[in-house]
């Protein structure tokens, strides 16, 4: 009897422990930095160390709290910030769609491959991760630049006579983002597609559906969870991306990452930089939270 009670207690404790790990992780690495950021965002910038005023001070037994929401108001006064947010969202959305169009067939082929070959194909998808992300972006500079591999090849074959300007354009940024994040699209797609029951496809064919109709009415709807997971994994980091546009992008590429960099480093205005970051987080978290809620409601209803 006592043993059973102990087992039950252990089970509850065990569950709590399992839940606690991600909670502690989120608390330490998401919530705490967010609170620090929020604190700086409502402060005022000064020439000092650290370069912002404390939001509270304790003098002669009086606690003074001063919150400066002007930093958020400031973001609405200049259209630059809105344009940069929109620029980032557009860049991320287009990249996600391209990654989906390229990643879906790849994931499909891998999922349909004989099981002994699947692991090799999957490893090939993950293989680029063995090289540093930064080095791979630098490699694209070598490929795309005026005297680079691609232009050299095109000129040697006589297709073009003057080197094309590909580097420092939006096209190069799309290329860099899609290339870098493609594995994050393929892997979740693969894991939903590989679980797809082939009997469903056979049933569809037996009922007279052509392959395309089967794909649109059976395969595609069933892989929606994979599409959503992959799209989020590409879209979210792409919105805040700084390195790829900084290295491959041109001066016209306006993204929130570079605006943030300017606020923090060029203007030395940590409070405004923090406000930009918080708005970015809200812009990202709210729609994603809503999406997840509708998604889980759907699953519960199903």
């Amino acid at each position: 009897m006592r043993l059973r009670a102990l087992a039950g207690w252990l089970r509850i404790e065990g569950r709590a422990a399992v839940v606690a790990v991600p909670l502690v992780w989120l608390g330490l690495f998401f919530l705490l930095p967010f609170v620090v950021l929020a604190k700086i965002a409502v402060s005022e910038s000064v020439i000092a160390r650290p370069p912002y005023l404390p939001i509270w001070d304790w003098a002669e037994g009086v606690l003074n709290i001063s919150l400066n929401f002007g930093n958020f108001q400031f973001l609405t006064e200049d259209p630059l910030y809105l344009l940069a947010y929109l620029g980032s969202l557009k860049m991320a959305a287009v990249s996600t769609v391209i990654a989906l169009l390229i990643g879906y067939p790849m994931a499909y082929v891998i999922a349909r491959a004989p099981s002994n070959r699947r692991n090799i194909l999957l490893m090939l998808v993950v293989l680029p991760f063995w090289t540093s992300f930064l080095l791979r972006v630098y490699a694209w500079i070598g490929i795309l630049k005026g005297n680079g591999l691609l232009n050299g090849l095109l000129m040697a074959t006589g297709i073009i006579h003057e080197p094309l300007v590909i580097l420092q354009t939006d096209f190069a940024v799309y290329l860099g983002i899609v290339y870098s994040y493609l594995p994050f699209m393929i892997l979740p797609l693969y894991s939903t597609l590989v679980k797809l029951d082939e009997a469903l496809l056979e049933a569809s064919a037996d009922l007279g559906a052509r392959p395309f109709v089967t794909f649109v009415t059976v395969t595609l709807p069933l892989s929606v969870p994979g599409i959503i997971a992959g799209a989020l994994l590409v879209f979210i980091p792409a919105v805040g991306e700084f390195v790829i546009p900084a290295l491959l992008g041109g001066p016209k590429t306006l993204m929130i990452g570079s605006v943030l960099w300017n606020e923090f480093f060029s203007n030395r205005d940590w409070p405004v930089a923090s406000a930009v970051a918080i708005v970015m987080l809200v812009v990202l978290v709210l729609p994603i939270g809503l999406l997840q809620r509708t998604q889980s409601e759907k699953e519960e209803n199903a």
Binding site: P251, L254, N262, S266, R268
Partner: peptide, 19 residues
């Protein structure tokens, strides 16, 4: 001065991006 830095960075962004 910080005010000037802000004006300068802003003008520079306009110059680069046209925004």
């Amino acid at each position: 001065k910080q005010r000037y830095d802000r004006a300068l960075t802003r003008a520079w962004t306009t110059l680069k991006t046209g925004q």
